[in-house]
């Protein structure tokens, strides 16, 4: 089924570039790409910096916000949460750091690939570190999602990292990892880093949720794991923490995710906003990197392929 998001609107917040520059050209290209898939894109400019409060007051009748900014800016300071509240509405905010014009162009290409795919099945790759605390969590999620989605329990105790990469690169719509995390990647799968994906990824992942500590943090690393995955065209959107997180909070996330998926969330922004726990500690550390409207459904072909990937359960 071709499911687009013609009802969605996006606020694209970008720095002011000189006209005719590569950066400007690529921003306009990004806007054009979005316009193929959503109802309306509102482009707003900011000077040297932006204030979320100002954006909130002056704009935001849209369903999602994407802020582009220089990659020197840390995700921690780019936004203070993965959403803003306007009235009773929670609006997801994505942050896209760019190092050069090429990054924006590559992100546009990822968008085009992800949004133009058929969206038939809710295939969810459930990833975790090999520890009862985490494997049990994904086991529960598999059980809860079984009737309405295609959950794939790919915890570290039943699958090799290489097979996880193979599976994800088929173009899985959504993946969620639970376990320990570091700015450079996941602790599970005997260390999972951005470079473990193949150089020319076959198909990017729609949304990847990294429900663990610090995978959007830049401590002792140039770009965080979450940022690298988006800029290297591995995912349209990632969701990760800029600080340490608590397991109890991530358990809340897991329950919220199941509930949101069962209610029919179809984009990463909708999913995050719907699944969000009530307590501030559970969401304040998290950031959404990349496309807040990234679709989380996969094609039926992907669904068939990934279910054939060998696990050792």
């Amino acid at each position: 089924m071709k499911y687009r998001q013609p009802h969605k609107t996006l606020l694209l917040c970008v720095p002011t570039f000189s006209s005719g520059s590569h950066l400007e050209e690529n921003v306009l290209h990004l806007k054009k790409v979005y316009e193929k898939f959503v109802k309306r894109v509102n482009l707003v400019r900011y000077g040297t910096t932006y204030a979320l409060e100002t954006i909130k007051i002056q704009h935001v009748s849209e369903d999602a916000i994407l802020i582009l900014g220089n990659a020197r800016r840390h995700p921690k300071t780019a936004c203070n949460a993965p959403f803003i509240i306007k009235g009773s509405k929670k609006i997801p905010i994505g942050w896209l750091p760019f190092r050069n014009a090429e990054d924006i162009l590559r992100f546009s290409n990822t968008l085009e690939r992800v949004h133009s795919r058929e969206q038939d099945d809710c295939v969810v790759a459930l990833l975790s570190q090999r520890h009862p605390r985490f494997t049990r969590l994904v086991h529960r999620m598999e059980h809860i999602l079984d009737k309405r989605a295609v959950p794939l329990r790919w915890s570290s105790d039943v699958i090799l990292r290489e097979d996880v990469v193979n599976g994800l690169e088929e173009g899985v719509g959504l993946a969620a990892y639970f376990g320990h995390g570091r700015p450079i990647g996941w602790v599970g799968y005997y260390g999972f880093r951005a470079h473990h994906f193949t150089e020319n990824t076959r198909e990017p992942i729609g949304g990847l949720l990294s429900l663990c500590c610090k995978t959007a943090s830049r401590k002792n690393t140039k770009l965080s794991f979450c940022e690298e995955l988006v800029l290297n065209q591995k995912c349209a959107a990632t969701f990760g923490a800029v600080d340490s997180t608590l397991h109890t909070d991530n358990t809340r996330w897991s329950v919220g995710l199941c509930s949101a998926l069962l209610k029919g969330a179809r984009s990463i922004g909708d999913l995050v906003v719907e699944a969000m726990p009530q307590n501030k500690t559970a969401f304040a550390s998290y950031r959404l990197i990349g496309d807040p409207l990234a679709p989380i459904y996969s094609t039926s072909k992907v669904s068939t392929h990934v279910q054939q990937i060998k696990t050792y359960s």
């Binding site: 529960r140 109890t248 358990t251 897991s254 329950v255 919220g256 509930s259 726990p277 307590n279």
Partner: peptide, 10 residues
């Protein structure tokens, strides 16, 4: 207990 509480909160 964490899952139960999370469900109730949700």
């Amino acid at each position: 207990m964490a899952e139960f509480i999370a469900r109730v909160e949700q």
